[in-house]
Amino acid sequence: MKQPLGVILAGGQATRMGGGDKGRLPLGRGTIISHVIARLEPQVASLALNANGDPSRFADLNLPVIPDSIDGFAGPLSGVLAGLDWAAAQDATHIVTAAADTPFFPCDLVPQLLQAAENAGTQIALARTPGGRHPTFGLWPTALRDDLRQALQDGLRKVVLWTDKHGCATAHFPDDAAFFNVNTPDDLTKAETML
């Protein structure tokens, strides 16, 4: 399999943080999203950002910004679909997604997802820790994008309902803290400590 493309999912509404782009919040010497980029970029062939609204607010990141194609905040799967369409236009076979608010995910996320899919003979793989699955951290095939589009148009929103239907491998990571995501001001304080 060719090296997948990377897509950072930043299409959420950040309601628990008071709205806005929580990936832009300061963390250490950068922002939450700068830590996400630094971890994902070396693992993928190229990188894009899935975000809605005015893309110019991300101009300084020098990444393509791809909006959801499904209206009305259809959740993370809508961002996955946008990423798959972007990747398919570049003849890529797969993308790997990461959440824009999770700055400490493993630096071997992509090889672990690829290995899990290969071992299981599946096209999709999700990250898992002892605390459960992390459905925004996954390996997704462009070949299934039309199936996903139809599922979203039919009202599906839950990631695992769609992935389980297609056979989904699991990449196991030992540390729940690696997938700690920043949802509230208290979480941001905790992230500073973790850093």
Results as ranks from 00 to 15, higher is better:
K2Y: 05
P4V: 04
V7P: 00
L9K: 02
L9Q: 08
G12H: 06
Q13M: 08
R16P: 01
G18R: 05
G19K: 00
G19T: 08
D21W: 14
K22N: 07
R24H: 12
P26N: 03
G28I: 04
G28R: 01
T31M: 10
T31Q: 07
I33L: 14
I33D: 02
V36Y: 12
A38T: 11
R39E: 05
R39C: 05
R39L: 13
L40D: 09
L40K: 03
P42K: 13
V44L: 05
V44A: 09
S46R: 14
S46E: 15
L47E: 06
N50W: 09
A51P: 11
A51R: 14
N52K: 07
D54W: 06
R57D: 04
R57P: 03
A59W: 07
N62H: 14
P64F: 05
V65D: 09
V65M: 07
I66Y: 01
D68Y: 03
I70E: 13
D71S: 09
G72F: 04
A74F: 02
G75V: 01
G75R: 06
G75P: 06
P76N: 13
P76R: 10
S78L: 03
V80G: 00
A82V: 13
A82N: 08
G83P: 11
D85C: 09
D85F: 11
D85G: 06
D85E: 15
W86A: 06
A87L: 05
A89I: 10
D91K: 13
A92Q: 11
T93K: 13
T93C: 05
H94R: 02
I95G: 08
V96Y: 12
T97S: 15
A100W: 07
A100P: 06
F105M: 02
C107E: 12
C107S: 15
Q112R: 15
Q112S: 15
L113K: 00
L113I: 00
Q115I: 01
A117I: 01
N119S: 06
T122L: 01
Q123L: 09
I124P: 00
A125D: 00
R128W: 02
R128Y: 03
R133H: 09
H134Y: 07
F137H: 14
L139G: 00
W140V: 00
P141F: 07
T142C: 15
T142P: 05
T142H: 02
A143G: 02
A143E: 06
L144P: 03
R145E: 06
D146P: 06
D147E: 14
L148E: 11
R149K: 15
D154I: 04
G155I: 03
G155K: 02
L156S: 09
R157V: 13
K158P: 00
K158T: 10
V159W: 05
V160C: 09
V160T: 14
L161C: 02
L161Y: 11
L161I: 10
W162E: 01
T163Q: 06
D164H: 13
D164I: 12
H166Q: 10
G167C: 00
A169T: 00
T170K: 02
T170L: 13
A171V: 00
F173E: 11
F173H: 10
P174T: 05
A177C: 06
F179M: 09
F180K: 07
F180Y: 15
N181A: 07
V182N: 12
T184F: 10
T184D: 05
D187G: 13
K190I: 12
E192A: 12
E192Q: 15
M194N: 03
M194F: 14
L195Q: 07
